[in-house]
Computed example of a mutant assay.
Amino acid sequence: MTIGLLVVSLVAQPVWWVGLIREWWTADRRIKQERLTFGSAVYSDKYEVRHFVLLSILFGLISSVISLAVGLTVPTSWWIGYTILALVAIIIGLGARLPITLLVGSVVLYDWFNHSSINRQIMAPMKQWGFSVRTVGLAGLVILSAGVLLLFGFWLRRVGGRFASPKIFAQKRGKLIAGYPFNELLVIPTLVFIPGDFISSHLAFWPVLSFGNTSVTPLFLPLLIGLNLTIFKQAPKTAFRKLSKSLLLLGLLILAGGILSIFVKSASLIVLGVAYICYLGCLIRVRWHDRHQSFWFSKVDHGVRVLGIRPDTPAAKMDIQVGDIITECNQLSVHSENSLYEALLSDPTYCHLKVQTPEGDLKVTETAIFDGAPHEIGIVVFKD
């Protein structure tokens, strides 16, 4: 019965469903933009939705097991406040932009509220309804923040740059360049303990666990992680891997700080503040490093720049990477999209390419292609 009720509460989690709708809308908008810019979608499947569903379940299971193992208890008022803020953030489009800001900000607001006179005025009448006013140390929330950063790092390593979907931008002088936006969100339903029996006092069938003289209620907490970042001058996968390493290292350091906060309570907000500053530093470092590279995904005169490679096409089997420049196709020089397809038509069943890498190295690659359908080779380039 208890497990069934928890499953129902997970399925009925509004933040998760709103997040799913947001990812569906994001994927649909991306596909429409790709079709408008390149004639057809680079990635026709809604991979954002697939990532959201599968990784939410996987990470939610992992985080819930760890949470139950350590007995993670979060304050009732913070659980309510964070859930509302997460829901509002997704609705107004800030869920992927400010996930860590939302988490740290909600903890700071909780601590301020807990020490303010407003707390006594609001909580006094709510206590009559069975609302628990027992405070919970911030150390648990610091450890929770460390866990979110670790999951953030693993998530980014798993999906960051894996689907390099280009978007065309115009520079000040009208020169066209390509950037690679990453705009995904994840809602991780994590099972935590809430002090008291506020829910069961109104819903008698809801499970309540007792540990000595303390009662706690198990509930799912919808943790947000997400990122909205565009890479202009690096291989997207490389850039996001570097960021994921920084987040994983930061998560481990904050975890150590959270454990310290258990014994030194005054250190909790300091550790959390340092964590947030370091997190912002990681994002700024990635942006700075990207903006200070000399390379651009831009049009070239001596060939055609590869902006993307569609999956399950002949090009996906070739030794071609995003950023490469195709200089020859079937022994014919190419300098535009039309000249590339004209060269492909010279041999309707086979494709032989001469390619220059961004570092200036030359390589040759070849593959069979779909007979009479050169446009389905799967190479995405600037439109003429």
Rank of each mutant, 00 (worst) to 15 (best):
L176I: 13
P222H: 02
T135Q: 07
P125L: 02
I177W: 11
A139D: 07
L109S: 12
L144S: 01
F211W: 09
I225A: 02
V216E: 00
L156I: 02
L144E: 00
A204P: 11
Q128F: 09
G179T: 15
F169Q: 12
I199D: 00
G93R: 09
F163K: 12
G95Q: 05
F163T: 14
I168Q: 09
T190A: 11
I168K: 09
V148F: 01
V104N: 06
L221C: 03
I199T: 02
I100W: 03
P189M: 07
Y180A: 14
R162G: 10
W112A: 13
L176P: 08
L151Q: 01
K175C: 12
Y180W: 12
I100F: 15
S106V: 06
L203G: 13
I118A: 15
I225Q: 00
L223V: 04
L109Q: 07
N119D: 14
E184M: 10
L109E: 06
G174C: 08
S210K: 09
P218F: 04
G137S: 05
A204C: 09
R134Q: 03
A178Q: 04
N213F: 10
P195S: 07
I122N: 03
V148C: 03
I199N: 01
G226L: 15
S215V: 01
Q171H: 12
V148Q: 00
G147V: 03
P218L: 03
S201G: 08
T101R: 10
R173S: 15
I91F: 13
S145T: 12
P195W: 01
S145C: 10
G179P: 07
V108C: 11
P195L: 03
L156Y: 01
F205N: 12
I168P: 06
V208R: 02
N114K: 09
L186D: 03
A164G: 11
F198R: 00
N119T: 10
V159I: 08
T101Q: 13
H202F: 09
S106R: 04
W206V: 00
K127I: 01
G174S: 08
F193R: 00
G105H: 09
I122S: 03
E184P: 04
I168G: 14
S106Y: 08
P218C: 06
L109A: 09
F152E: 00
S132T: 02
N213T: 05
K167Q: 14
F154I: 10
F182G: 10
G212M: 05
Q171M: 14
P222G: 03
W112I: 15
Q128A: 13
L138Y: 05
G93V: 10
Q128I: 13
L102K: 06
K175G: 13
G137M: 03
G105R: 08
Q121G: 05
G161E: 08
S201H: 07
H115N: 13
L94K: 09
P99I: 15
L203Y: 15
R157M: 07
T190Y: 10
K127Q: 08
L94F: 14
T101V: 14
W155S: 08
A89P: 11
W155Y: 13
I118K: 08
I92Q: 12
P189D: 14
L102Y: 12
L224R: 06
V104I: 13
N183L: 14
L223F: 04
W155F: 14
G196Y: 00
I199Q: 01
